[in-house]
Computed example of a mutant assay.
Amino acid sequence: MKEDNKRIAEYEFSIGLRLTHWIRAISIAILIVSGFYLAYVFVSPVITSEPVNFMNAKWRAVHQIVGFVLIGCFIFKFYLFLFDKKSKIERVSVKDSINPKIWIDQVKYYLFLGKHPHLSGVYNPLQFVSYLFFYIVLFVICLTGLILYVHVYHEGLGGLLYDPMRVVEVWMGGLANVRLIHHIAMWIIMIFVVAHVYMAIFNAIKGKDGAMDAIISGYKFPKEH
């Protein structure tokens, strides 16, 4: 019997979700590069007696500005997940993530032992748990970043956040531990990004439903049932 390959366009990701995804991706890339510079200076300016270089200050400014962009993006994405009507399909994924049968079927799919399970939401259980872990780590890196920020800027927003961030700093065991946690969180995010890109390509090739198109256009193209 000939397989029916007719496909339908299915709207999966809203414009808000797609924007937060790409802003977050670009921000993370910039933060990784600038963060590496601040931790391990790998470019030195031309030596001059004139006070015009300030390369470290420029890298730090970029890191801080993009860091606040990432924090804003994180807060907005959290709002979308909880309240946006078009993001309901993400919230429904919680139901799939606690279904043992879907877990088993999903693992079998990745091992080429079965078909992809039918999902109520947009994410399979492995994806949902991975993204949940990612956002927890993202929260940690934003929080530790704010603690480091208030130690440099003591007025304005830095002054407003100084006292509560110092309390969190004590909980984490001091400023040295905060910096260490910040770096560890960065490495976890870097590993996640590599795994995320690999699995996105894997699902796009194996599923052949335009899974990677959806994060750009909003639409994927599953087979019509």
Score class of each variant (00 low, 15 high):
3 E>V: 12
9 A>T: 04
11 Y>G: 00
12 E>Y: 06
13 F>Q: 10
14 S>V: 01
15 I>D: 07
16 G>H: 08
18 R>F: 07
21 H>E: 06
22 W>S: 03
23 I>W: 11
24 R>F: 06
28 I>M: 13
28 I>F: 15
29 A>C: 08
31 L>S: 06
32 I>Q: 01
37 Y>M: 04
41 V>C: 03
42 F>Y: 15
44 S>A: 13
52 V>I: 15
54 F>V: 05
56 N>S: 14
61 A>E: 14
64 Q>K: 04
69 V>K: 05
70 L>D: 01
73 C>Y: 01
74 F>L: 13
77 K>N: 12
77 K>M: 11
78 F>C: 11
79 Y>P: 07
81 F>R: 08
85 K>Q: 09
87 S>E: 15
89 I>C: 04
93 S>T: 12
95 K>M: 08
95 K>P: 00
96 D>N: 11
109 Y>G: 04
110 Y>Q: 03
110 Y>W: 12
111 L>N: 08
114 G>P: 02
114 G>I: 09
116 H>F: 15
124 N>V: 01
128 F>V: 03
129 V>N: 05
132 L>E: 04
132 L>K: 08
133 F>Q: 01
139 F>Y: 10
140 V>E: 09
145 G>H: 02
145 G>Y: 02
147 I>M: 13
153 Y>K: 04
154 H>D: 06
157 L>A: 14
157 L>V: 15
158 G>L: 07
158 G>H: 05
159 G>Y: 10
163 D>Y: 08
163 D>I: 14
171 W>S: 08
174 G>K: 10
179 R>F: 12
183 H>C: 00
184 I>S: 11
188 I>N: 06
189 I>W: 00
191 I>S: 14
192 F>R: 09
192 F>T: 12
195 A>W: 11
196 H>N: 10
204 A>R: 05
205 I>Q: 06
206 K>S: 10
207 G>E: 10
208 K>R: 15
209 D>S: 10
209 D>C: 03
209 D>I: 12
212 M>V: 13
215 I>W: 08
215 I>H: 09
217 S>V: 01
220 K>G: 06
221 F>M: 11
222 P>W: 14
223 K>G: 02
224 E>W: 02
225 H>L: 13
